[in-house]
Design a protein around this nucleic acid. Sequence first.
DNA 1: TAGATTGTTAATCGATTAACAATC
DNA 2: TAGATTGTTAATCGATTAACAATC
Lengths: 205, 205
Amino acid sequence: MNTYVSDAVIRRLPRYRRYLLKLKKQGITRISSKELGEIMDVTASQIRQDLNHFGGFGQQGYGYSVEDLIERLEDIMGINKSYKVGVIGCGRLGQSMINYLKQDPSYKIVALCDNRPDMIGTEIDGIKVDDKATFQKKMKTDFDILILTLPAANIEGLEEDLKDSKIKGIWNFSMTEIDVKGIHTSNVHLFDSLYSLSYYINHPE
Amino acid sequence: MNTYVSDAVIRRLPRYRRYLLKLKKQGITRISSKELGEIMDVTASQIRQDLNHFGGFGQQGYGYSVEDLIERLEDIMGINKSYKVGVIGCGRLGQSMINYLKQDPSYKIVALCDNRPDMIGTEIDGIKVDDKATFQKKMKTDFDILILTLPAANIEGLEEDLKDSKIKGIWNFSMTEIDVKGIHTSNVHLFDSLYSLSYYINHPE
DNA sequence: TAGATTGTTAATCGATTAACAATC
DNA sequence: TAGATTGTTAATCGATTAACAATC
């Protein structure tokens, strides 16, 4: 519907989906914004407002179809499409991401990279770990999303490689903030949430 | 200064610290809100407003001392204190968290737990992996922060154990949302950021 | 001192909530 | 039909930005 939707709304969409998936699992087929709001601890108004950025998915007097709404949300986020994914950094964090992604058919890992000699050439889940040069070539055309699960120290030169690639998005766990024109980047700073948690521990109530 | 500070502000504090640490590393000793704002891509006004929730750390006509400000931020967040940490779930994700935390002297891991027979009794970084019963006992008194890096399916019964523990905070990667009265929880849903990234990939500016 | 930059108040902007007519 | 609940507009609330006097 609307062309621009604020980031605050976009970031709430995955959470709506999670709760709806849970409801679906419980066999619940329809839900009102009021009920959903109570479960999620948000206002019914916010839910309706958020959803109506993308069109009217509900039905007056009835509410929303759980299954239908999940599908709509997935369409909006584009998470039921098919993405080809490359991963740089096959340490523990990288491996755990590879492992989780295996469960999601939309994100298909097609290439891995690591700079440790004892890792190069080995296979993880049937995919060979490339050295830098080999991976760089693949980067140009082979995938849409790049996952960075390597230490910040090792990302040097990466921005240059990105410029003539087809990569559209970077999921970045490298503890840096990458900003390449034309490529969407989600900079995940895992420890930030531990630090804000620490704040709240020290400032009870 | 102020008693209540909004969550939006608290979540920005770790990012300020990250940039300031980088500046310190570069040998820069002082900075104005204007310069810092340019580097971080936020307004100078927001920086000053944010910091002044906690007191005046700057000096008119001069700016802020980088080193001093880092220290103040760490004081505010309480991340230079000493925390004892327990970890449930020693798979790849758990191990990578253990590994990262090793580098931070403030968060000391004192107990590990896993339910896989072949893991129990082994050591990770010199700490033995407990079975559930052993860990439950330790939970009562031995640590302040609990890290959950296990599948959601396995957290059943946990809330009960938490109630008579001394745990003050939970850093939760289990893909559920835990809500125990009196315990601060940071529910990290790693995949949410991949999904919102996907949205942006599909909605290019 | 003059210039720079803070701390802080006031103005603006945007996001959230409330309200209600439309309608299933 | 009557009741329920949406979609949407209007009101409120809070967060961000601008402005400027205080002051180093």
